[in-house]
Design a protein around this nucleic acid. Sequence first.
DNA 1: AACGCGGCGGCAAGCGGTTGCCATTAGTTG
DNA 2: CAACTAATGGCAACCGCTTGCCGCCGCGTT
Lengths: 377, 377
Amino acid sequence: MTPSPEQPARPAAAEPRRRSSARSTPTIYDVARAAGVASSTVSRAFSRPDRVNAETAARIRAVAADLGYRTNPLARALPTGQTSMIALATADITNPYYFELIRGAQAAAAERGYTTLLADAQESVAIEREGLERVIPTVEGIVLASTRMSDSAIRMLAKQRPVIAVNRDISDVPNVVTDHAMSMRQAVDHLADLGHRQITYLSGPEAAWANGMRWRSLRLYAGERGIHVRRIGPYAPTAGGGARAAADFPAVRSSAVIAYNDLVAIGFMRRLISFGARIPGDVSVVGFDNIFTSALTSPELTTVAPPLRTLGSMAVHNLLALIGGASPTTVRPLALPTRIYVRASTAAPATRRRSWRDAPAPREPATTRGNRLPSSG
Amino acid sequence: MTPSPEQPARPAAAEPRRRSSARSTPTIYDVARAAGVASSTVSRAFSRPDRVNAETAARIRAVAADLGYRTNPLARALPTGQTSMIALATADITNPYYFELIRGAQAAAAERGYTTLLADAQESVAIEREGLERVIPTVEGIVLASTRMSDSAIRMLAKQRPVIAVNRDISDVPNVVTDHAMSMRQAVDHLADLGHRQITYLSGPEAAWANGMRWRSLRLYAGERGIHVRRIGPYAPTAGGGARAAADFPAVRSSAVIAYNDLVAIGFMRRLISFGARIPGDVSVVGFDNIFTSALTSPELTTVAPPLRTLGSMAVHNLLALIGGASPTTVRPLALPTRIYVRASTAAPATRRRSWRDAPAPREPATTRGNRLPSSG
DNA sequence: AACGCGGCGGCAAGCGGTTGCCATTAGTTG
DNA sequence: CAACTAATGGCAACCGCTTGCCGCCGCGTT
């Protein structure tokens, strides 16, 4: 902006120097000058109010507000290392399962003045790693919501930043999980109360921790209630997977089905209906997760809902505790309670069906040690 | 913390000074020392490779890699103002509509080395403002995806940071939009080709820009094809809104319905079916957005899909251009083409229905615009 | 042979805050 | 009334990186 005969032709060219009280954002120095104090005092007026006289602080605040001063989080982050940001890594942001979890997490974070960085892995381990790699230097901690990473990779990560795993149990890494046992018990109880005597489980990915938990719990509680269980799968945790399950189902012929998750349940129902089956007339179906779509299907899906929101906020809450210096052992994992939403996809088994059942309440499932199944992809 | 005979009991207390080559992340100084050059040279080796001898740069890189050095984005941001972060503000992160948009945006950003900050407004103008306020100092620019903010508020925002609006037309604020006219034309053509002579539009929120566009386009194209149109509403852009529309619908009695969006269409279908109507037998339904749920309903919903992913990446692309110094007038808005997914919720009107219509014979075969189904992932 | 110049590296001054330490002042205490 | 202490504000040194400017060096010009 040297005084030249002609004005420079480009209006867009930003002025090179933004010295002092130019038009850019005011800094503590501007506030300090206007308030007649040292910049350090301004700084303290905001970050350590107890360290400065109340009146002075008030005056500074007033001046600051007047000038429209806002402390620059980046500048603050440099000397302190406190970026006030955390990362939330999800396997797939488009999975409705995460919605409420994300919300809970963001709300809890915002409440404490933290900003949430969402890292979407898009189901790719490479993308996940890259994204995480990118944000690590910026964030103070990380919430891993159903990551695809290996246990060891996660432990590695936990060395660099505080980490909380959601619904995953890794030694040395603090976590928050839903009470899978309880959720399955709710599903089983519901079906048992309706009078079902046999249940088929549509298995999800074998690698999924939750899948193992569900199946184990199902066997346990079904056993307790004298119900016969079977498992088919594994299937992809999608509507497509559920459709494939429907194709396999006729061989099983149980009156009730518990699916790995809602998507599978929905895919299963649709295909089965297209085969001419009636739901819940011929078979009752229960899903997990209560994704919002499950209330829009025909029939509406009975499902067991994890406390997603709480899960998210709890994860962040614990993460912040960790960041605050709490020892990992202090933030012990706790299993959050679930809730069953009974809708239209479940009913008492049809009487005629019961005819081809003879079972005098067997207490031991047929597929006792049957941990492995035809791996149909 | 005065030196006392006993060690303080808290082990968690981080060491106060992390001078030089402690265990923390290596800095350019560490690299400089190890490579026997000045820190400025290290800096340039990364940010301005042309400014330093190729050999030297290579050596520095090697040493840096060896030490595990990674440039700290925060520290870089301070002097340069380049945080390599942009914000993406959505009205409601749980709205499936945004999924692909978010993905497109994140992908485009990542490609250019930018990190995306997601600001979820949770449908609240207050939360939106607060969230935005929080991230403004941190980001270089903002993508506004269907914000609830007023035009003037947006213009205000645009003064502070480069802004791109998605599907919203505000003078002085560059934007990217879907071709609403085209999308409606596709819907109308499809129904007209099937032989429908009258269409009812289920109106969305009157404040929604897209709603006005849709209705106007509908009247235009329906007029061109000699089709009678009606409008009922407004309804909330949710399944609940659609259900209410179904209650109002009997009074209209047209053979085809175009809903403001998929959610409305789905809610409408479900309620109407519960009333005993058959879809598409009694009435054909077309939605907008192609949210993933629309492929899971019964019947599957025919819908017009906006190029969400492209929309997101385009928005980011333009935003980065803006950040790069392009003048707002350069990044002119462009309307992105849509695509219709013909599924099971539309069919030719029932013959008996046609009886109370007087319309001349349809002129097009049934499934003309046979865009095929998505792979329904 | 003196000079100019381009290439390359180093110096040092920031960017906007934070914070250890010191100086000043006022309030306590004996 | 002197000595001591707590409260408060200022000084200045960072945090890790960028960058304008200067200096050195070797080479091509006239």
